[in-house]
Design a protein around this nucleic acid. Structure first.
Lengths: 148, 148
DNA sequence: AAAATAATTGAGACTGATTCTCAATTATTG
DNA sequence: CAATAATTGAGAATCAGTCTCAATTATTTT
């Protein structure tokens, strides 16, 4: 879970620092986004918030992204999927059921930094996606191949 | 460089195995793609091959991708960039000049496998992108900040 | 708190990328 | 070579995302 209070403060601070207005539309969308469990698509936000226009949803999601509160990844099918930014983490994506599993590994992070350093590249951020089959789908598959 | 001869064989084998026809359009596009240095965009292929229709370029690039000969990544600006598949590698992407640097690190690969194993996830492939500033742009920047 | 100013919104037009349709063409098979 | 199956091209259609601009709302100024 994300601290909503804190997220709202971060967002309004960001808006003020950029000379942008604090509007009910923006707060509504942030609220909706914070209540999303896990990952969500833009269409979800548009559908669940008919009061706000499609254009404003797009604009506002980009603003919230610029504020550093959400980010997106691409699924196997190239769908844009948003998520609320928590601590940094990477993703495992199941190619069978589409499930997205988050993970974080400090060793991986430091190894990445080493690799960059050895090449004179100055990293700011990274994304890593591992595609494969999640435990549940592996189990289901092995059951299907061994019928009663 | 990629062995063209071998790539053509792989492609025609793939087509045959899928019951697909071997057409001049498909071979032309594969040929063009193999001659691309590094990374290319779909529009490049369409422009350089006016004999073949836009629709067929799209269809054929997907076919070549399915055959495992090319793949694509997304840049910072969400552009689709294709590349010929060589040995597996990951990418560093410069946020200043857009340059794409390929790298491969066996330690990274085995660490990824360990991480998956510990979570019961069976990996098939992965993508990793590190965004940051390339050596050339770092140098250029530091020069700009220290004028003569 | 009203006026003046600046930013935002909504509706729908627009764009660019990609997919679809289907008749005409070309490859494959027997 | 004829019959069959797959592919192609041209343009229509779709889709996500952006843009326009007048009307509305937030912010700042007096």
């Amino acid at each position: 879970m994300v601290d909503h209070q804190y997220a709202f403060k971060q967002f309004t601070d960001y808006l003020r620092s950029e000379g942008k207005s604090i509007t009910p539309e923006r707060l509504d969308i942030l609220d909706l986004v914070l209540h999303e469990k896990g990952h969500f698509r833009i269409e979800d936000v548009i559908r669940k918030n008919e009061r706000v226009s499609r254009a404003t949803v797009y604009r506002t999601l980009k603003t919230i992204e610029d504020a550093g509160l959400i980010k997106y990844i691409r699924t196997i099918h190239d769908e844009k999927i948003f998520e609320v930014v928590k601590e940094h983490h990477d993703h495992m994506i199941c190619e069978v059921c589409g499930k997205i599993i988050e993970f974080h590994d400090p060793e991986l992070e430091s190894l990445q930094n080493d690799i960059c350093a050895s090449r004179g590249f100055s990293p700011t951020r990274h994304t890593m996606k591992i595609f494969g089959i999640c435990p549940a789908c592996q189990k289901r598959r092995s059951q299907e191949n061994t019928p009663a």
